[in-house]
Every structure is written in C-alpha cells, then in structure tokens.
C-alpha cells in the first residue's frame, strides 16, 4: 500500500467508478425525459386523429346542406384514410394547419346556412370539436413542456456530454401557428 502508483490507481479507479455511475444515471434521466416527450407526441397524434374524425363528421353534415358546393371540402376527401402514421413533427403541424383551414370553411358554411346551427347533431359536433381542440392544445402544451425540459438538459453542461455521446439531439417544438415551410411536401 506504500506504493504511490497503487494509491493513484485506486483513486483513479474510484473516480472512474463515480463518473461511470453519473454517466449511467444521467443517461437514464435523459432517456426517461425522451420517453415522456414520445408519450406526449403520441398524445398529439391521438388528438389530431380525433380532430380529423370529428371534422369529417362535420363535413358530412355540412355537405347535406351544401350539395352544390361540395368542392369547398374537396381537400378533406383526399384525407379519408386519416392521418398517416410516420409523419414528422413538422408534417403534423402542416396537417393541423390543413385541419384549421377545413374548420374555417365549415364556419363559413355555417354562416351561410343558419339552419345548420339549429341542428342538434351539428351543435353536438361543434361542442365536440371545441373539446377536441382543448385536448389538442393540452397535448401540444404538454409536449412542448416536456421538450423544453429535455432540451434544457441537453444543452446544459455536463449533461450535454452524455447527450452527445448517446446521440441525443434537441427536439423541435410543436408550434400553434406554423410558419410556412416550402420544403415540406404533403401526400396523403
């Protein structure tokens, strides 16, 4: 034990051990946060799909009144299959913008045909879409809160070292209003 080399080795070994423990626990913490982000993202998918379904029902109801104006909703018809599974976050935002446009069209139709407002099925659908909107907003905020927490860790030193080693990059936020992105192509 008198040999200083052995002492230095032991100290280095202990230090290495603690660094390893820290690395593993930091990695696990980042992974847990990433899982939360993924869970929140699937929440967005659910909310978007629900919104799509409800809007489709609304479109069907509105079309009964506006047979000669069916063109207005043409862009919805091509989404009959619903939301594709493997969309990126940017594409999901684009999808949401398209749903917004459809909803705006429906609102215009409602203004033109006041009888629609009196129809119970339609008013229930309007309530339902309001609730779906709230769920979508909740999913978006939860996702962004989780992304914010994860990104804050990823950019902080020394956690950034671990994030870099395991190839974890900053996630993008789900914006309420998407700025136009010319390079995103949507084919449903």
């Amino acid at each position: 034990m008198d040999n200083p080399v052995i002492i230095v080795l032991i100290v280095l070994g202990v230090l290495l051990f603690f660094v390893l423990i820290w690395f593993i626990s930091t990695m696990n913490m980042l992974r847990r946060k990433e899982v939360k982000v993924n869970e929140a993202e699937s929440g967005i998918d659910v909310a978007l799909t629900k919104r799509f379904d409800t809007l489709s029902k609304m479109v069907d109801t509105v079309k009964g009144y506006t047979k000669h104006e069916a063109k207005t909703f043409e862009n919805v018809v091509k989404w009959r299959k619903g939301m594709p599974d493997d969309l990126t976050m940017e594409q999901k935002q684009e999808f949401m913008q398209k749903l917004n446009a459809v909803q705006a069209d429906i609102n215009v139709a409602v203004e033109q045909y006041p009888d629609l407002k009196a129809e119970k099925v339609f008013t229930n659908l309007q309530r339902s879409i309001a609730d779906v909107e709230e769920h979508l907003q909740a999913s978006r905020r939860l996702y962004n809160a989780n992304v914010s927490a994860l990104n804050a860790k990823i950019v902080s030193f020394p956690t950034s070292i671990v994030a870099g080693k395991i190839g974890m990059a900053k996630k993008i936020f789900f914006e309420a209003e998407l700025s136009k992105r010319a390079d995103v192509k949507m084919d449903f």
Partner: peptide, 23 residues
C-alpha cells in the same frame, strides 16, 4: 410543472395523468 413560473410557485399541481393537468 405548468408553463407559468408564478403559478408553479403558488400552487403544487398533482395529477394521475399529465395530459389532464394541461387539459
């Protein structure tokens, strides 16, 4: 934790489902 720092300082938010909290 919600987005508002003031809110988080004033209240503790507990939930069995985080989505419900944001909803």
């Amino acid at each position: 934790d919600l987005e508002s720092i003031d809110f988080n300082k004033k209240f503790n938010t507990y939930t069995t489902d985080p989505h419900t909290a944001f909803y």
